[in-house]
């Protein structure tokens, strides 16, 4: 009896979490343009998606922005975390606090202030401004994730490496980075997803020449949900799952 109860409870949670995704997946194979009723199986929408150059360009743009923003933010955030952990300097607490402020601030505030900054400089809105904006968005998350990892391993280990003749760079390369690798990877993934599904900051900080996926979808959906958007969502879910499995495998082999 209790086993059924437990099983049922778990099932209802999974249902609650994943039912929306299942619905999207089902409708991406539905042979009907507008209807919510089932009209038979088709792969038409995937074919159409492939030929929808506007959508595909936006998708590729999004991936490029997400990958570059995540990589640069991970680089900067990891160094920031190392500096915060390793050194005591004036303004250290302030810097630390700033990261939390950035994480808590509403996206709209960050978006508007970045926009004002770019216009004041002045920079033309487009790829570069969007990249900068997304890096700003992601760095605090990486820094805090990696920093908390540093805090979990003994400071002695760094002292020991220096004691054995390692320069500061060698300490970072041979001790800090390998030990922090899981957190660095997690920081990258977090940044990647943050960047990929960001609407508000992207909306204000990119130009007409560089359109990203969430904005494209947003503008399409205003005219009604089209099944090729469903297909796109399914493609992205599959993409995400593959990425997750890959990182799991990578992290496991490190152990």
């Amino acid at each position: 009896m209790s086993r059924w109860l437990k099983g049922g409870y778990a099932a209802s949670i999974f249902l609650f979490l994943y039912l929306p995704l299942v619905v999207v997946a089902v409708f991406s194979f539905n042979d009907s343009r507008f209807s919510l009723a089932w009209h038979g199986f088709t792969l038409d929408w995937y074919v159409r998606l492939w030929h929808n150059t506007g959508l595909m360009t936006a998708a590729v743009n999004s991936l490029i922005i997400a990958a570059s923003a995540a990589t640069l933010a991970t680089f900067l955030g990891t160094i920031a975390a190392f500096v915060l952990h390793q050194y005591r300097f004036a303004g250290r607490r302030l810097l630390f606090g700033t990261f939390f402020v950035m994480m808590m601030s509403p996206d709209i505030v960050i978006a508007i202030s970045l926009l004002l900054l770019f216009l004041a400089l002045p920079l033309n809105l487009g790829f570069h401004t969007l990249l900068l904006a997304h890096i700003v968005l992601c760095v605090p998350f990486v820094a805090i994730t990696v920093f908390s990892r540093f805090h979990r391993f003994q400071h002695d280990v760094i002292d020991a490496a220096r004691d054995l003749g390692a320069s500061e760079y060698q300490v970072f390369r041979h001790i800090v980075l390998p030990l922090a690798a899981p957190a660095v990877a997690a920081g990258w993934l977090l940044s990647f997803t943050l960047s990929l599904d960001d609407v508000i900051i992207s909306f204000f900080n990119t130009g007409p020449g560089f359109e990203v996926l969430p904005l494209r979808i947003y503008s399409m959906v205003r005219l009604g949900i089209r099944p090729d958007v469903n297909a796109l969502c399914v493609a992205m879910i599959v993409f995400t799952i593959i990425a997750l499995i890959l990182t799991k495998i990578l992290l496991k082999e490190k152990k």
């Binding site: 003994q154 002695d156 002292d159 020991a160 490496a161 220096r162 004691d163 390998p178």
Partner: peptide, 20 residues
């Protein structure tokens, strides 16, 4: 003179072995 430049080595209290 930093630790890496001294002809001195340390055995730390909790050994501080590199876990990886």
């Amino acid at each position: 003179i930093p630790p890496e430049k001294r002809a001195v080595n340390t055995v730390f209290q909790n050994y501080a072995l590199f876990p990886h």
